[in-house]
Design a protein around this nucleic acid. Structure first.
Length: 995
DNA sequence: ACGTACACCTA
DNA sequence: GTAGGTGTACGTC
């Protein structure tokens, strides 16, 4: 080569993967051969050659080569056996396309370069340096950062996708260092995709900053001791050797032995007929036409070439065996873990045992051993195929079901498609062979700027598909198995379908293992199947790059969605026998599963909020807070961010030197309300104002400003989401927005409740259990005085005070009662002298005395606590009165504070959990009871011991007794309480007055 | 952009 | 002392 020549080096492997992911895989040849990557590759190459030959651009290649990776094993693996160890195998559909793409390159009359033991990047580096030495210019067609180290005055890169040139300034702009420092930067940051180690906590920004400061990597490593940031310094020092290794790994080899000399890369003219023959064979009609036009050939006269296709992994080892060679965990590797999990988590079975326990164990073992095979998944593209799947589901009587949508919010989610999974009993009567499909309904195209954003091809019209699906989902004789069904239930409801006959694997896991890990599908799959499902992030991206599921290409969507249904059905096979074996079927069937439709309907109804009330409140709060701000700055003598506990602490205890300072666990000054209250009590004006300011800003930001954002655009109501499997005790939780923590304690806060209103012609009815947890305590601990007091309707805190302090209930001083009340709550929370002392602001010794006295007066409580603790230690869990279990795996921790915490929690769980079970039962019974009474009252919200309804004005009088009756008798007939349950209910037009 | 600390709202 | 969720600040990516 000589000066004035221009070499184009195309990163072929990079091209392949970008093409594969950019072009929807429904791009298949008529015989079903996937050719989407080939198509993308050819289009990109054609565009590149056309543009490059256009002399107007000023870049005319004289030499041209397409470079590929040959083998997964390169000299880098000898340096570091973990190199690229986390690479996964290429997608199934891509495999036959590797060979085709090499054919394509030759059809374009371009040299196709690869070499065993080296990566494409090394070949590119070598050619680039050689050309540069000859005085030629080089353009590397790639956007891979690994190649940026090659950029010089004469060597630049070109990102064909973004049509962007990458020269020295672009590298500096993107990475903060010039190209020659890229190696240093990559050595520091490492590379997770290639599994190149880096320094923990150092990303590109920090690395660039360090290199700026120290000049280069060697200087930095030599002077690492000078780094000020402690963590950073320690990490770099500890990683020195690894960083040097990483430098070897990321440095591209510029002396790769070449089979094709540089001068042979000369760009030959296009061989039109040869290229057209190939393109015709691939059935790329548009490109064939374009090429024919450009070459002035008659495409019709050219016969399609015969292109051999290599399907198997053996046919083209190099690109394919990456995953395997790199030790990607196979399904079998994971099996051991899951089988071990089964062995640890499940009770031991006796040999030859046919008991539920043995079944549960063998199911777990078999399903964890049966590999999940994405290649068996089917994309259902026509009604005939859907009908076949539905018929098979009916035949099996059992089907895994999952929906894919555009949002986590079931009330706003748009349906994209659904998946089904069926045990293939023909192949395997034991049911471990499962086949699954995805039915895309609403996927869009729009990847790449050439294709507009229309509906993707090959989808069944949504109405027709849902019509067929409705028959299946509403048929109670076919068991639908879903994970977190409440979500899918709501989505389907919004399409006029009410799922009947279902199981929910999330709730099964919750019934079995509450407290012992979370119950999400990915976790359960890893725990029980030893399989890590494709993550949502992998399919749809995350953060700024996230796309909604309807934009995901259908083949990726199929792999993800069908796998979810598959995994769900497998989990069902593992968990269902466990329910029986561990005697948790009743809990699941009576307390968990029936709540799904109940909660779904509550969420669907939502509640009206008065935005004007909130807006007015927000203004008032803003004004009030602004007033405090001025006064606070005045008293502090400077302006600062009052909302920053750090700045506030420094002002109060640093600068002003106020007394009574204490530290948080991270060593910051504590500015908790308690601390500030104590200071205010000493007559200091500033702390009081800060407390008041915090109250106003809290109410404003968390409630008056946030709630209007949750008003649904169509229903104009607020629809919270209840989590059924989030707590250890059996309580629900509420989020988006949380309607279980709306203020009530202060007058200011209660104003927010006035914004929760009934629709015209209706009232809100609030019904809440009175002292339900103390009643449960009286029941489970069987305390005579407590039972008597509740039976007689006596003030329970006054009774406690009277028992403890010998003061008559009549004319009880409020301070005495307050202390007794704190003790009662303390008991429920698994009392400690430390906690009680804190609560009452008394000495720990005094609190200890109270507790001692309490146990003397109520020995049954002490017994209950000791028995419960012992039970938890023995079994690792505790039980509610309805048999719900809460697990405390750390109860035997050798750390005394961890152990004590678990003991308190296990004392609390049966009480809190039993109360939760009771209100769950009430909720399940409520709708049929209201219907039976001919009432249209609708249950809207649950707040642990309170239910909120919306009731027509004329129905209120009739509805209240029904509601109260259902709640008070919720435990019947399963269990007769030793104390009566009491419910207070009232109606008003807003939640504040109803409460 | 994401995670942690802190503070604070509820039962 | 139990069980939750959310907003802001702040440090790191």
């Amino acid at each position: 080569m000589k000066k004035g020549d221009h070499l184009f080096l195309v990163d072929g492997s990079g091209f392949i993967f970008r093409a594969f992911h950019a072009i929807p895989p429904l791009n298949r040849k008529s015989d079903g051969l996937p050719v989407n990557a080939v198509s993308g590759f050819c289009n990109m190459l054609w565009k590149l050659l056309k543009d490059a030959r256009n002399t107007d651009v000023g870049v005319t290649p004289t030499h041209f080569a397409v470079i590929f990776d040959y083998s997964s094993k390169t000299f880098r693996n000898d340096l570091y056996d973990q190199y690229k160890a986390n690479r996964t195998a290429p997608p199934e559909d891509l495999i036959p396309q590797f060979g085709l793409i090499r054919h394509a390159t030759r059809a374009f009359n371009l040299p196709c370069i690869e070499k065993e033991g080296f990566e494409a990047d090394d070949l590119i580096a070598t050619y680039a340096r050689l050309a540069e030495q000859d005085g030629a210019d080089v353009t590397i067609v790639s956007s891979d950062k690994d190649l940026m180290q090659l950029v010089t005055e004469n060597v630049s890169m070109y990102d064909g996708m973004k049509d962007k040139q990458i020269s020295i300034p672009e590298v500096i702009e993107k990475w903060g260092v010039p190209p020659e420092k890229m190696i240093d930067l990559q050595s520091l940051t490492g590379d997770s995709t290639d599994n190149v180690p880096g320094v923990p906590g150092i990303g590109p920004k920090t690395a660039a900053q360090l290199l700026e400061e120290y000049g280069d990597l060697d200087t930095l490593l030599a002077r690492a001791e000078e780094i000020k940031q402690v963590k950073r310094r320690e990490n770099i020092i500890a990683s020195r050797e690894l960083v040097r290794l990483s430098r070897q790994l990321v440095t591209l080899k510029t002396d790769t032995p070449l089979d094709t000399p540089l001068d042979e890369l000369i760009l030959h003219p296009q061989d039109g007929p040869k290229l057209i023959a190939f393109l015709k064979a691939m059935e790329f009609t548009t490109l064939t036409r374009r090429v024919a036009e450009a070459c002035d050939c008659d495409a019709g006269a050219i016969e399609a070439a015969s292109v051999p296709v290599e399907w198997g992994a053996a046919a083209h080892g190099p690109d394919l065996d990456k995953g395997e060679a790199a030790g990607r965990p196979s399904a079998l590797d994971g099996t051991e873990t899951a089988a071990e999990a089964a062995a640890t988590l499940l009770p031991a079975a006796v040999a030859g045992d046919l008991s539920p326990t043995a079944l549960a164990r063998s199911r777990a073992e078999r399903f964890s051993a049966a590999p999940i095979d994405h290649s068996t998944y089917e994309t259902v593209r026509d009604l005939e195929a859907l009908d076949r799947w539905i018929a098979a589901a009916r035949e099996a009587g059992l089907v895994g079901f999952d929906t894919e949508t555009t949002s986590l919010d079931a009330m706003q989610a748009e349906l994209c498609g659904f998946s089904l999974a069926i045990a293939d009993n023909a192949k395997d009567p034991s049911g471990t062979v499962i086949r699954a499909c995805y039915v895309p309904l609403n996927h869009k195209t729009g990847v790449g700027d050439l294709l507009g954003g229309g509906m993707a091809d090959g989808q069944i019209p949504i109405r027709a598909a849902l019509e067929r699906l409705k028959g299946l989902l509403e048929d109670p004789s076919v068991l639908k198995v879903a994970q977190n069904l409440k979500y899918d239930y709501l989505v389907m409801r919004r399409h006029g379908i009410t799922v009947q006959g279902f199981d929910d694997t999330m709730l099964m896991s919750y019934a079995l293992d509450a407290g012992a890990g979370t119950h999400g599908m990915d976790t359960l799959s890893e725990r029980w199947l030893g399989h890590k499902p494709i993550s949502y992030k992998e399919v749809a991206g995350s953060g700024k790059g996230a796309q909604t599921f309807d934009m995901v290409d259908i083949s990726r969507a199929t792999a993800y969605a069908a796998e979810d249904a598959d995994v769900t059905l497998r989990l069902w096979h593992v968990l269902k026998p466990r329910l029986a074996a561990e005697r948790m079927t009743a809990v699941y069937e009576r307390l968990e599963r029936p709540l799904v439709p109940v909660l779904a309907r509550m969420e669907e109804r939502g509640i009206t909020i008065d935005r004007q009330v909130l807006s007015r409140l927000s203004g008032e709060l803003a004004q009030g807070a602004a007033g405090f701000e001025e006064e606070i700055y005045e008293l502090a003598g400077e302006r600062f961010n009052i909302g920053s506990p750090k700045q506030l602490g420094d002002i109060l205890f640093g600068k002003m030197g106020l007394p009574g300072a204490s530290k948080t666990k991270t060593g910051q000054w504590s500015t908790s309300a308690q601390v500030l209250e104590d200071l205010a009590a000493q007559g200091l004006p500033l702390p009081r104002k800060i407390v008041d300011w915090r109250q106003l800003t809290k109410l404003k930001s968390t409630y008056t400003d946030a709630l209007p954002g949750f008003v649904h655009p169509d229903t104009k109501r607020v629809h919270t989401s209840y989590a059924l499997a989030a707590t250890t005790t059996g309580r629900l939780s509420s989020s988006d927005p949380n309607l279980q923590n709306i203020p009530v304690r202060t007058a200011e806060g209660r104003k927010i409740r006035t914004a929760f209103i009934s629709t015209p012609g209706h009232k809100l009815v609030s019904a809440d259990y009175s002292q339900i947890e103390l009643r449960v305590l009286a029941h489970v601990a069987d305390i005579p005085q407590l039972k008597q007091a509740f039976a007689d309707g006596i003030d329970i805190h006054a009774m406690t005070a009277s028992e403890m302090f010998g003061v008559p209930v009549e004319g009880m001083p409020s301070e005495i009662r307050r202390r007794a009340k704190a003790i009662n709550f303390g008991i429920i929370y698994g009392i400690s002298a430390f906690g009680l002392a804190n609560q009452l602001s008394i000495e720990r010794s005094e609190a200890g005395e109270y507790i001692k006295k309490y146990f003397e007066r109520f020995p049954g409580i002490k017994d209950y606590m000791d028995t419960t603790k012992a039970f938890a230690r023995e079994n690792g869990y505790v039980e509610t009165i309805f048999g719900r279990r809460a697990h405390y795996p750390e109860i035997k921790s050798s750390n005394p504070s961890v152990r004590a915490f678990n003991e308190r929690a296990s004392i609390n769980a049966p009480i809190q959990g039993s109360a939760a079970d009771i209100i769950r039962r009430a909720m399940i019974k409520m709708e049929p009871a209201l219907a039976a009474a001919g009432l249209s009252a609708r249950m809207l919200l649950q707040v642990h011991d309170e239910l909120i309804f919306e009731v027509e004005d004329g129905e209120v009088e009739k509805a209240i007794p029904v509601i109260v009756d259902v709640m008070e008798n919720a435990s019947m007939p399963a269990l007769s309480m030793k104390v009566p349950l009491k419910v207070d209910a009232r109606a008003a037009t807003n939640w504040d007055e109803a409460h």
